[in-house]
Amino acid sequence: MRNKKLVDYSKYGYIFAIPFMLTFLIFTLYPVLYTFVIGFTDLKGAGNTEWHFLPSVGKNLFQNFKEVLTSQTFHKAFRNTWIIWIMNFIPQIGFALLFTAWFTDRRSKVKGQGLFKILFYMPNIITAATIAILFTKLFGYPKGAVNDLLNSLAALFGKTRDNYDYQNNEWPVKIVVAFIQFFQWYGHTMVNLIAGVIGISPEIFEAAEIDGANRVQTFFKITIPCIRQIMLFVLVTSLIGGLNMFDIPQLYIGTRANNAALTTNMYIKNQAFAGSYMYNRSAAASVILFIIIVALSSILFYILRDKDEAKLKKLRKQELRAARKGL
């Protein structure tokens, strides 16, 4: 800054950052550390706040972590979370890419795409809790809109069908939960990807067109490599969100259907705020989840950074080669 020597303004940087810092220390950092500590204690029981470290009550320090890691229910919750996330993410990114390709295509300008975008994005702002319960009713048995719809479709073809209970078997429950996640998020992903494509310089597309590349070639060889960053951003945020999945499975089915859609976050909540109020075990589980998320995001960020550096190196080499040729 030019006036730096006249007046030192740097102290305002600290002053203006104080509210954020204080709030973060009190409401995030302290609770996180507290959660870590509780994971090593005997804290349980509704309304209890007194705790002792496990060794002082004659137990292994890692008892809670051991219990969580060997618990069948936790294993199931962990598996479910991944299965549901994958079943939602693959079609989500697939359809988002498809619509992105269609809506950004320069040759066939799709009319009404503004309206489609707005409609596809809408479920994302609606309360997840509401959407989950709405789907509980729509997939209801014996009476529900989906059963009614399929019955009338069957009647169109002169057939009859029996009502199906979607909420009683493991796979239908998982599939519907994954579908609701998909329903809420594909529009969001699509809008992100479209923004990425619009950001690509039009000259690249023009050049491809002149070179005679068809639509499919242009999309796979130019569009996708150019929006790789945004796709990774979508992947990382979706993964973190997916591993924290709670509202939809909790309210769509809860622990019914033999824990068919129990997620790790539901497990954490149920351990601490239901049954015997095992705050310690719940804390241990959330620390485990935290470690997994940090590890996964670090790996993804590492891959992302590495590739960029590789790309830069490649570019530099090309430039060097070009320079040499020019000489």
């Binding site: 730096k4 740097s10 102290k11 609770p31 996180v32 959660t35 924290n244 935290f290 998320i293």
Partner: peptide, 27 residues
């Protein structure tokens, strides 16, 4: 503003974004 801890603070904000809300819950 240019202050000494600015870059550290900025890096911290990006790191905080990764903390899942679940891990704060019990504490």
């Amino acid at each position: 503003y240019e202050w000494k801890l600015r870059d550290a603070f900025n890096g911290m904000i990006i790191a905080i974004m990764m903390i899942p809300s679940t891990v704060t819950t019990i504490g």
